[in-house]
Amino acid sequence: MEYIIIIISAVFVNNILLSQFLGICPFLGVSNKVNTAVGMSGAVCFVIGVSTFFTYLLNKYLLVPLGIEFMQTVAFIVVIAALVQMVEIILKKISPSLYQALGIYLPLITTNCAVLGVALIVVTKEFSFGGEPHMMNLAESMVYAVSTALGYGLAMILFAGMREQLELSDVPESFKGIPIALVTAGILATAFMGFSGLV
């Protein structure tokens, strides 16, 4: 039951893109086409999942025992940077076409705030999920991280679908490109607000 609450809360209610504003850069950058959006979300999901796993353990078994939690930001970003590099090398080998499509955005996952954001939220924030507020354990953290990433993917793909349609419509000159995309994102965020208060 608790896991279901975590999933609903992370995917819909506190959608990382539309209500917490993390990871907007690639959201606006690669969401022109559904295909690239799918690829990008996949890469982000993978990196969020793996990096949260490592940063959680790093925090619990190294930083906290040594009393150096203040190094969190520095330590986490190093882990994330290393992981992204790894994903890049693997992707280059197994799917060159996807590698081409994601282009410059792949190294930018390092600077995608969603990744560092989730890693930091997991180790610093208390969650209640219907019960007593507590720090999340490893299982809960992983469920939270993966469902947050799914929420990211969901918002991104929905948005890419809408932008593909926008290409065909008649948009005022000065709204072309990013501004109309932002207005669209605003409407999508309004829709997601309907979920608030659900858990």
């Binding site: 208390e126 209640s128 007593e132 507020p133 608030s196 208060g197």
Partner: peptide, 10 residues
């Protein structure tokens, strides 16, 4: 004192 019943959590 705190409450967990808030709209946005604690």
């Amino acid at each position: 004192s705190s409450s967990n019943k808030g709209f946005g959590g604690k």
